[in-house]
Design a protein around this nucleic acid. Structure first.
Length: 534
RNA sequence: GGCCCCGUCAUCUAACGGUUAGGAUACGGCCCUUUCAAGGCCGCGAUACGGGUUCGAAUCCCGUCGGGGUCACCA
């Protein structure tokens, strides 16, 4: 029923791997996977001025992290290669050059010797005149063959421009929107080949998509304005155009296109903040798409079973970090204990030696939006805590594989991100708490009562057998009975104890924590607290 | 500003032209509870506006308004 789709994602290696790249990769890969086609990664490195050396590797890593590996793509960094290579545009330069020459020979393109200065002033004049048309005026279209030859002989730098039809409507088609037409006379002749011999996006895209047998171009909506160029290019070459499907743009809270200043856009940020790749992937699948029966949590396999490009909702979705935060918590709770333990250890390893990177941000550099601001502040502190604890956790983990495991059930349902484990883990590795006298006296408790509670609880624990299977229940009962005997509610009664054992008034469950720590350690902590309170 | 795209709760979204416009996040309340969570229940909350077409419009058409994208030898 469906023919195999060949689709691609084509990021340019100009910085951190972008969440939008992951979004496009997901929908393109789904298209390939549901049709038995191929998902291709192509590196669009035709802008030498913006090239970032490590970026390509990061794109690879980020896609692999999300399980969005391409079927075909550049070699190196574990890339798969493929029959239509090379997949780096910088390695395909002769093809673009040839294609441009072909178009010139066919009279569909021409050499333009206009200098940048001329274009700048032209644009300024047009703007000053409030001209409806802003762009190149086609001056070099009229160059005679001798003039071109003379310019060439003189070694004058030039670009190659596509001759766009001036006299017609340019009809284009988008899978979601149907026909979109543009007035030819309102378009400028776009540059195909730059002075430096590199192609622009337009030329490289058409040549490569054709050469690689791309059937569907699923890309961001911001490309719609250049649709007439792309259709005209295919026409000039005499090639059939692929299906174009423009996905909605991910948005900031203010509905503008998602941007670094207003929202985290780097996939590295999401990884560092302790989002699980499967949760982020799921979340991206919720952007402009939905599964039947209101199902919001789904595996990639389930996503594929329900995937239908035509069902994409093209209203621009706001990337709601708060909902991702919730979703990630759901995913963490669904991990089995062993797996969560492993991920936490991995995350600790990721945090090592990066204290400077996670230093507190000054107020004016913090995000404006309240949830994100709060999240970012916490996450930096938590990252530092985990980084500092990492060596100890990893060593312990290697020495005793069961060390962390009993802790996992106590913290699992409290986490929304891995980094939040920083709020719960340290108490299991240190008894060196920086508590204050006031911390031991919560509401509905007195200093005398606090000391009394610590003594009573110590006495109960001293007689308890921590290895008895029913010890948790019997301790619960004993604490409750004692608090009642003292005329106190159980909460205020155990408040000081919680501080003594965990160092904080908010913690994992108290009795379970004691059992993980062991009798000796628990009693020692109570004694420390009693000594502290003098 | 020109061109183009889009408009269902604050947010993500559902709804063969016929539903009391559904679910989820967030928010509020209650329950559970040994702190914090998690969980359960309840609540708040939308078809931008105005015209058509139709027995009947969130859904089709037109206009208005609003939002966004784009106007590079960047992608």
């Amino acid at each position: 029923m469906t023919t195999p789709a060949r689709v691609r994602v084509a990021p340019s290696p100009t910085g951190d791997p972008h969440v939008g790249t992951a979004y496009m990769a997901l929908f393109n890969k789904a298209m390939a996977d549901t049709t038995g086609g191929a998902f291709i990664l192509r590196i669009e490195d035709t802008d030498r001025t913006r090239y970032v050396a490590d970026s390509e590797r990061q794109i690879f890593d980020a896609l692999a992290w999300l399980g969005l590996n391409p079927d075909e793509g550049p070699q190196g960094h574990g890339g798969p290669g493929g029959p239509c290579g090379p997949y780096r545009q910088s390695e395909r330069l002769p093809m673009y050059k040839q294609a441009a020459e072909d178009l010139i020979a066919k009279g569909k393109a021409y050499r333009c010797f206009c200098a940048g200065d001329r274009l700048d002033t032209l644009r300024k004049i047009q703007q000053a005149e409030k001209s409806k048309f802003i762009g190149y005026d086609g001056l070099c279209r009229g160059l005679k063959a001798e003039e071109v030859a003379a310019n060439l002989a003189a070694g004058k730098p030039h670009v190659v421009r596509l001759k766009l039809r001036q006299d017609a409507e340019i009809q284009t088609t988008d899978l979601f929107r149907g026909q979109i037409s543009f007035i030819g006379a309102e378009q400028q002749d776009p540059v195909l080949l730059k002075t430096d011999g590199y192609p622009t996006y337009h030329l490289a895209m058409a040549v490569d998509d054709h050469a690689m047998g791309i059937t569907h171009v699923i890309r961001a909506e911001e490309w719609i304005p250049s649709l007439p160029i792309h259709f005209e290019l295919y026409r000039a070459f005499g090639w059939d155009a692929p299906v174009f499907a423009h996905m909605p743009l991910l948005r900031n809270k203010d509905k503008s296109k998602i941007s670094k200043r207003k929202n985290p856009t780097s996939l590295l940020w999401y990884r560092d903040a302790g989002f699980l790749p499967e949760a982020l992937k799921n979340f991206l699948g919720l952007m402009g798409f939905s599964l039947p029966n209101d199902q919001e949590i789904f595996s990639y396999a389930e996503f594929l079973q329900n995937f239908d490009l035509r069902k994409v909702n093209i209203g621009g979705p706001i990337f709601d970090l708060q909902k991702l935060h919730w979703l990630n918590g759901e995913y963490i709770r669904r991990l089995d204990d062993r797996e969560l333990e492993k991920r936490l250890v991995q995350h600790c390893r990721l945090m090592i030696g990066r204290e400077a990177e996670f230093a507190d941000l000054p107020e004016d550099q913090l995000p404006q939006e309240t949830f994100l601001k709060d999240f970012e502040q916490k996450r930096r502190r938590q990252s530092r805590v985990l980084g500092a604890l990492a060596a100890e956790i990893m060593t312990s983990y290697e020495v005793n594989p069961n060390l962390l495991l009993p802790i996992i059930p106590l913290i699992k349902e409290r986490l929304h991100t891995l980094v939040e484990a920083a709020d719960y883990l340290p108490m299991f590795f240190t008894r060196d708490f920086a508590y204050t006298r006031e911390a031991f006296v919560p509401k509905k408790q007195t200093p005398e009562g606090a000391v009394a509670a610590l003594r009573e609880v110590r006495a109960i624990l001293a007689d308890a057998d921590f290895n008895n299977p029913g010890v948790k229940e019997s301790l619960d009962a004993a604490f409750r009975a004692k608090s009642e005997a003292l005329g106190q509610k159980i909460g205020p009664f155990l408040g000081p104890v919680r501080v003594a054992i965990t160092g904080a008034s908010v913690s994992p469950p108290l009795v379970e924590s004691m059992l993980v720590l062991g009798k000796q350690e628990t009693l020692a902590r109570l004694d420390n607290a009693l000594k502290f309170l003098g």
